[in-house]
Amino acid sequence: MTEEIIIAGFGGQGVLSMGKILAYSGIMQDQEVSWMPSYGPEMRGGTANVTVILSDNRISSPVLHSYDTAIILNQQSLDKFESAVKPGGMLLYDPNGITRHPERKDIKIFQVEAVDESIKLSSKKTFNMFVLGAYLKLHPIVTFENVVKGLKKSLPERHQHLIPANEKAIKRGMEIVREMK
């Protein structure tokens, strides 16, 4: 099994940390992982993206031109990466702020209203975990237990108390994801 994922959105939405938690979860599950961020000027207020690969085998290129899954959190990223999903692949996005919705017919498209839900539950800081939950519901490539272990590993000491809130957000994300037809 190899899963090639792009996560893209605005800087500050937790794109990179979502990727890191996913990568850590993969390690907990004894997988090979790579996490390659966009870095530099685009990170500072602009768009941010990270390529995450989880695999049972040695990972060759950390740089990809097409993905099994695209997790999209803003319009610019949708415009940039919709065409990069492999035929038969999956696109998961938050419709918040999206004016032109995905149009491809040869991929599976899912929505998770993570921004709305995180505001509703007064849990804005765990926004990205609603998205991660939605993804894991669709592609359970790592077990929930290993994701929690991954969270513990990747959150710094001062944020460890937020783990229950993050777990809750992941579970809620699993519930609210829906397929677009």
Binding site: K20, I27, V33, S34, M36, Y39, P62, V63
Partner: peptide, 10 residues
């Protein structure tokens, strides 16, 4: 290079 410097792996 910046790619290997910035990326994370196991």
């Amino acid at each position: 290079d910046g790619l290997i410097g910035q990326m994370m792996e196991k």
